[in-house]
Structures are given as structure tokens and as C-alpha cells.
Amino acid sequence: MMNLLSYIVWNPDLEAFRLGPFAIRWYGLMWLIGFVLGYFIVKRLYKEQKIKDELFDPLFIYCFFGILIGARLGHCIFYQPEDFLTSWKGIVEMIFPILIGNDGSWLGQTFGFYIIGYAGLASHGGTLGLMIALWLYVRKTKLSIWTVLDNIAIATGSMACCIRLGNLMNSEIIGKITDVPWAFIFERVDAVPRHPGQLYEAIAYAILFGIMWYLHKRMPQKIGTGWYFGFCLTYIFTFRFFIEYTKEIQEAFEASLPLDMGQILSIPFILLGTYCMVRAKKS
């Protein structure tokens, strides 16, 4: 029998702090910290490469909206299409960070809807959205797409680590039941010990950032070849593919699939990352 006292009991407050009537949640705060870290890391890289400040300034506007829109659409389309694509209520909730009242009206308590933020963001969709946003950015700035992708890739580990820590604070994307001594009991979910999948990913992404920063110092000439971008994709989504074996499925329909949705969506990114690394080596 499992000794529940041996495990880490996890049930933090969703709110980090309040500013008057506004609650700042841990998840949103970790997203913000991740973006701020990414901002200063990439700004330093641009400075090292003597890229003009005016070309850097719009970058994170593109990144913010690209990741947010892509992550939101990715979750709604790949994980919950039956909830978001089958009614006007679902489509509105997909686009706006609100929850409409059960009667479907816009009146009633709190005018019939509640501002809850975006409950459901998918990293695969966020990655695709980021790539599209960066393509639009380079069309405007005329910078090399490979230079921009490599710079963002070097900073990605720090941002991804913060986002997964936000998932941990939300007790979401939980792991399967286990008896390992570092198991977490997510009280908001149930009372059994589970793999802390979010923490595994956060640690892996922090290590990725350390590797990328070290390599860019040793091999700055590779920036602009696409090698760092390829390495980043291959590392993240290969790890993501295997870590899925420790996670609970997010939606019921995944139980009938040979691989879960996270693994299926990881394969194209692994192939793309491998291609970019091979291409960079040849060039």
C-alpha cells in the first residue's frame, strides 16, 4: 500500500497576488517572466550581432501574439474541437478569454460572462504560431529568417521552463499514478501520487537553455545557419514525445489512439528540426 505521507502534497493558491480588484495568477505571471527573460536574452544576442535596435523593437509583439494565438487555436482544434468548433458559444470562448453563462445569454450575473483568461493553450500550436509570426516579422524587417529563428531558439528554453512552472502551479498536465519518491499529490485533482510531468519538462527546458547558451558562445558562427533552431526543435519535441509516457491523456479520445495527441504532434517538429540541422551542416 502506498504511504501517502512519503510524497509531495501540492495545492498552491492559483493567485500569486492581487492588485486591488485584479488577481494576478501564477500561470500568467510565469508567462510574463518567461517573455521578459526571452526579451532580454534576444536583445543581448541582437546587440552581439550588431543588429539595429529598431529591427529588434517589433520582434516581441510578433512573438507574443504568434505564440498566444497559435497556442490557443492549437488547443481548441487538436484537443477540444467538439467544445469549441461546434457552436457559436464555443467559437466566442475560443477567441476571447471569457466563459459565457450556461444559459447562453450575455445578460445576467456579471453580464452573462466571466473573464477567466485562456484556459487551454497547446505548446505545439504555440510553436507553429511563433514560426508564422517570425516569417511575417522577417518579411517586414528583411532580416535573415535563419538568424531570427536561431536567436529565438537560444532563448526558448528559458521561456518554456517558465511556462511549464506555470502549469505546475495550476496543477494541470498531470502525470500518471506512480510510487516514485518524488511523486506529487495534486490535491486539486485527486489524492493519489503522480508523476510531476510539468516539473520534468521545466527541468529539461532549463537544461536546454544552458546548453544553447554555452554552444552559442563556443560556436557563434552557426547563428544564421538554422542549426540552433533545428537543435531546439529536435531536443524539445523528442523529450516531449517520451515524457508523454509519464502523463495522463488530456482528452478521452486519446485513449483509443496508438500515440497520444502530444506525441503525434511532436513527430513533424522532430523531423523539421532534424532537417534544419542536416541542412545547416551541409551549408
Rank of each mutant, 00 (worst) to 15 (best):
N3Y: 09
L4I: 12
A16K: 03
L19W: 00
P21E: 02
F40Q: 06
E48N: 13
D53W: 08
F56R: 10
D57R: 13
P58C: 08
L59K: 02
F60T: 03
I69G: 03
L73W: 14
C76F: 04
I77D: 02
F78E: 01
Q80E: 15
P81N: 03
E82N: 10
W88L: 12
K89Q: 12
G90I: 14
I91D: 01
I91T: 12
E93C: 04
E93F: 02
M94H: 08
I98N: 08
I115D: 00
I116P: 00
G117Y: 03
A122G: 11
L128H: 06
T141P: 09
L143I: 07
L143W: 02
S144D: 15
I145D: 07
V148E: 00
L149S: 04
L149N: 07
D150F: 04
N151P: 00
I154N: 03
I163W: 06
I163L: 13
R164Y: 07
G166M: 08
M169L: 09
S171E: 12
T178I: 02
I185D: 05
L199D: 01
A202D: 11
I203V: 15
F209Q: 07
F209L: 07
I211D: 10
W213P: 00
H216A: 04
K217P: 05
R218E: 03
P220A: 09
Q221K: 13
K222A: 05
G230L: 08
C232N: 12
Y235I: 05
I236G: 01
I236Q: 11
R240K: 11
F241W: 02
E244W: 08
I249D: 12
A252R: 12
M261F: 06
Q263A: 09
Q263T: 09
L271K: 07
